[in-house]
Computed example of a mutant assay.
Amino acid sequence: MKKQELIHLHGLLAQVQNHYEEKTGNEVEHDEYERVNVRPTSIHMSKDDHKDAVFALAGGITSEMGDDKSEQVPAAAD
């Protein structure tokens, strides 16, 4: 995957996290993501840095969703 694609994926995952937190009121675990200290807007960071951030963010999101007792996240109104 190219760096630009990783940055795009990173941004999408950040939006998924924000949407999930807004809809459920549950906060996604940020410790690992904060440790990596790379944001989607950190375009000067290396491809590997963004890769680490993507894995940390995805791990936090999936872990929180796995712990969530509700059936599903409410869909966004169009």
Rank of each mutant, 00 (worst) to 15 (best):
A76Y: 11
H19V: 13
E29G: 00
D48A: 15
N18D: 15
H44G: 08
Q17S: 15
D67N: 10
H44R: 14
D52G: 08
D67S: 06
T24Q: 07
L13H: 00
G59V: 04
V16M: 14
V73P: 00
V28H: 01
V54T: 02
D49C: 07
H8F: 03
S42F: 01
G66E: 03
M45L: 12
E71K: 13
G11P: 07
Q4C: 10
S42R: 03
V16H: 06
G11W: 08
V73Y: 01
P40V: 03
L57G: 01
V36R: 00
P74W: 02
M45Y: 13
H19N: 10
E5F: 12
V38H: 00
A75I: 10
L6D: 02
K3L: 06
H50N: 02
L12V: 13
D31E: 15
S70Q: 10
P74E: 08
G25K: 05
D48P: 00
K69N: 05
L6F: 05
S63L: 09
A75C: 15
S63K: 07
V54Y: 00
E64G: 03
Y20R: 09
R35T: 02
S46E: 13
F55Y: 09
L12M: 10
L6N: 02
F55P: 01
A76W: 13
D49F: 03
E64H: 06
K47C: 10
G25D: 04
M65K: 09
L6V: 09
G11Y: 03
G60T: 07
A75M: 13
A58S: 14
E34N: 12
D49W: 05
